[in-house]
Computed example of a mutant assay.
Amino acid sequence: MTHLILDTLTKRYGTATAVSGLTLEVARGECIALLGPSGCGKTTTLRMVAGFIAPDAGGITLGDRRIERDPPHRRAIGMVFQAYALFPHMTVAGNVVFGLEMRHVGRAERDRRVAAALDMVGLAALADRWPSQLSGGQQQRVALARALVTEPDLLLLDEPLSNLDASLRGEMRSEIDRLRRRLGITTLFVTHDQEEALALADRIAVMQAGRLVECADPRSLSEHPRDVFTASFLGARSVIPLPAAGISMATPPGASHLVLRAARLQLLPAGASTDAPFSVPAVVAEAAWLGDTIGYEVTAGPHRIRVIRPTTEAAFAPGQPVRVAGWPDAIAWIETSQGVAS
């Protein structure tokens, strides 16, 4: 059942268009990630849904009600901000109860819901602490509890993990996923982190220059992108326009671009033979040690191809001739008719 509808949402700032005709439907209980580079319009979209920015055109329907002209406090929405936005003069419990007080919820019910929310995020023992006494992960949990305590119809997350260090991001990502699935709450979140979007979202809406480029489940988007921008932006891959000089292989009818997945390509010594459907001689341009893997940039004629290989394999040095090989699972095709081939 569709729960949230964004209908041709548009927002302009003078002559600049931040969001242009964005249309998106979100099912009840579904988690959608708005993914794209800085300035693509994803945060503007989220803030229009939250009610902090009024759209210049288009509508927003939540449940059975149009809400694009409602003030934020009348939208039954909970939001977690990038900077958490906790009140420094209030305790953890004071921050969480604030939204309930604004809604004039009775004392007994407030106490019950605050206790339940803090227990849900594992902070029941810290109810009397001040925000300055908390770690970044704990502050993030307070912000999440504050958003959920009002029992909203929709949860909005604006770059929820960007202020956490790498060790905490994975932990909090799992925590958010567990909570939103347990509550069955419809969720819309903004991120530029592809790994975060792939791990949390039921579907990913890729945005570029204010427009919705493509929207699909993570596996479909990763394995079979329909647009050149999506293929280039999502993950480590190389996108080569066709026909490609120096690359000879069977091409499906209508294919406009060849997509090569870096982690599935093989890097072989220059003289090695292979019967892989994709095979080209190349020269290593760059080699970067990444811990468990080595990231290579190789040149094959006019093309630059990225390859990621485990450190357990023999390493190649910059300037060394090699052969890049790929089996069908390393290859995808984009047709001009499917998306914007650009």
Results as ranks from 00 to 15, higher is better:
M1F: 11
H3M: 15
L4T: 12
D7R: 01
A27F: 04
L35I: 08
T45Y: 11
R47T: 09
A50K: 10
I53A: 14
I53H: 11
D64A: 14
R65H: 15
H73V: 06
H73W: 09
H73C: 05
G78E: 08
M79R: 05
Y84E: 01
F87M: 13
H89T: 12
M90Y: 06
F98C: 06
G99N: 08
V105C: 02
R107L: 11
D111W: 00
D111C: 00
A117W: 01
A117R: 04
L118R: 04
M120W: 07
V121H: 00
A124D: 15
R129W: 04
S135N: 03
E151S: 04
E151Y: 00
L156M: 04
N163R: 03
A166H: 03
G170H: 03
M172F: 06
S174Q: 08
E175G: 08
D177T: 01
L179I: 15
R180D: 01
L183I: 14
V213G: 00
E214N: 01
D227P: 03
G235C: 10
I240W: 11
P243W: 01
P243C: 02
A244H: 05
T251G: 06
A262Y: 12
P269Q: 08
P269Y: 08
A272K: 03
D275N: 11
P277T: 09
S279P: 10
A285S: 10
A285F: 06
A287D: 13
T293W: 12
I294E: 15
G295C: 08
I308W: 13
T311M: 14
T312V: 15
E313Q: 13
A314N: 09
Q320T: 11
V322K: 12
R323Y: 06
I334V: 12
I334N: 01
